[in-house]
Design a protein around this nucleic acid. Sequence first.
DNA 1: AATGAATGAGTCTTCATTCAT
DNA 2: TATGAATGAAGACTCATTCAT
Lengths: 196, 196, 196, 196
Amino acid sequence: MARAKDEKKRQTILLAAKTLFSRQGFFNTSVTDITRETGLPVGSIYTYFKGKEEIVRAIVDEGWGDLRNRLVTTVSSAETPEEKLKLIIDQFLPEVLNDLDLVNILLSEAITYTKIEEKVEELSGIILALLKAVAKDNKALSGLDKKMMDTALVVYFLGIMASVKVSRASSIGLKVGDILKFIKYTVGSSLGVDLR
Amino acid sequence: MARAKDEKKRQTILLAAKTLFSRQGFFNTSVTDITRETGLPVGSIYTYFKGKEEIVRAIVDEGWGDLRNRLVTTVSSAETPEEKLKLIIDQFLPEVLNDLDLVNILLSEAITYTKIEEKVEELSGIILALLKAVAKDNKALSGLDKKMMDTALVVYFLGIMASVKVSRASSIGLKVGDILKFIKYTVGSSLGVDLR
Amino acid sequence: MARAKDEKKRQTILLAAKTLFSRQGFFNTSVTDITRETGLPVGSIYTYFKGKEEIVRAIVDEGWGDLRNRLVTTVSSAETPEEKLKLIIDQFLPEVLNDLDLVNILLSEAITYTKIEEKVEELSGIILALLKAVAKDNKALSGLDKKMMDTALVVYFLGIMASVKVSRASSIGLKVGDILKFIKYTVGSSLGVDLR
Amino acid sequence: MARAKDEKKRQTILLAAKTLFSRQGFFNTSVTDITRETGLPVGSIYTYFKGKEEIVRAIVDEGWGDLRNRLVTTVSSAETPEEKLKLIIDQFLPEVLNDLDLVNILLSEAITYTKIEEKVEELSGIILALLKAVAKDNKALSGLDKKMMDTALVVYFLGIMASVKVSRASSIGLKVGDILKFIKYTVGSSLGVDLR
DNA sequence: AATGAATGAGTCTTCATTCAT
DNA sequence: TATGAATGAAGACTCATTCAT
């Protein structure tokens, strides 16, 4: 009896907060803002979340969980490592970059609650395993040691995200498409694989 | 004389604020924190700066100005484009990454007041000109169009900075040295130039 | 049957609340605390009580009723006034002081809802009647007028309770036993009766 | 330069808070209440005190300091221990009981911040020393051991205060004068001294 | 110019109570 | 009747900035 917690309401809060945090930043978004955006009374926000921090954490954790799942799905939907990599770049990466709000929040000053380093490490792990498999029969990659591949992944991943974030915030003439094209070219040529 | 004394105070404020903003974030640093760190009265802060925002802006603008100057100096201290590029990677980049506080702030949520996109564009411009010069006689680069080179620069630059920031904040096993090594290798091989 | 179950729940609430109010104070105890302690849903609390205030009131009234009953029982279980007094001190008072939680609450800020003055007056009345009976043939007491005896009772009673409360809350080297011993001695000697 | 902290303002806050805490209790008094009562803006309250707790603590500590000073002054203004005791009862105690607000707060639920046990111990110490001096040549007292005298002091002191508090809050027919009369009589007769 | 007290809008959060289910 | 989500007024406190001295 009594009402059950309403998952839809929880999502409403999460969605509104995500937009606001992304647009105005975590610290410039007040709980009252979320209240206004959702039309919910303050109390309800606290029925679903312990506080503002827990909201960001939920946004990031759940958003990231989604991405991770998509990565895993993507990877397992192809046979060879080469095809897997191709899918990562053609399918997974565009999906990530599509969720601009999430990217924005991941790199925001609320980074403290965000533990982006853990996420990046997790992702790197998955892709790194793939690269090793590719590398076995690949002259181009065999010259790279593990550390350098790891570094490369982190730099590329964060570089892509930061570029998207910055280019979005400004009138810099950089589009998501440009970035994807660059990555495709770079990865392709460094692996000696045609990802075109 | 009065001027000298003033400028010293101004720098004291700037330095303290830089450390604090980097360590605790812009929004988690109060003007009172700056007051404590500098030992100056609140009033003095407002004698030198219109407000908190103006302090970040000054930190970023002046820090960036420094970097720009160094880049220009570096570039002009070598003859051939190849040598210039080498110096950029061997001298300029390490200098940038040495100023971790500045990097931190540049990428922070205060990005709003920071106009990082303008800075990146400016820097890109300088390097891009160089790359074009190198590219003229370089097969590796002639395949890249202007847009892609531009994109590459932005992605690498922001990727490096974000990696340094993230790796600093966490226990991710990534050192500044690793990142520099990676960049050297990547740029070297993509230009067909030995930057060893 | 339904009644029995109900009454049990009611007592559960009362008991938990008593402990909590005593330990943390009335204002620092939330209805949610009671909820947690009892394992009952909030709604149930309000099924049995109109609100938080009514809970303290019930604790105090029922606790006090108990004490009054014991006092009456005690008093009627002896023959002479002297024996009655002896029992009050030897049996009743220790029982009162044993219920530290009640004492705590009686003297707490919840005094507002508690009408402690009425209780004290009631108690005084009973004992005063006794004292008068004793006094008739007692030189020591005949010098005291009614008013002063009344005052004495109130001061001693509240003094004992406050001492117990305070000594419990702190490391003051005062034990319940010390207080009882003192009272015994004082009353005994002022009545010229040996209560040893 | 700049304004100096205004001791008068601090006292205004303290006085208003004292009245309010005494009348409505600590937890039922909001900082806004203090604001209203004093006419000061919220911020100013926090310029002078870290928070609500610090305000009670200041009220209690300073009020108590006053009392202690008066006690010491009183005690040193007489020659013999007997005269000192007389003054304590005739002069000091009435002064204490005159500050009903303080008494109220000392015994309130905010007792946690109030450390009344320390105060009582301090006071006991002073008076106990006196009593010992009196006891040397006093038959009535020589039967009491130190522990019991200590207990007596605590019980009487708290009993007096609690009685005053309770009688004030209610229509109980107990006046401060009655209480003082009782104490005078009791102490007098137990010491075999005429304090009339 | 230097100082730091003064200010009050705004922040996050709590919590007793109600009421839909 | 039992339940616990819903509610929103109220709470304590912060802090960038101003301005009296």
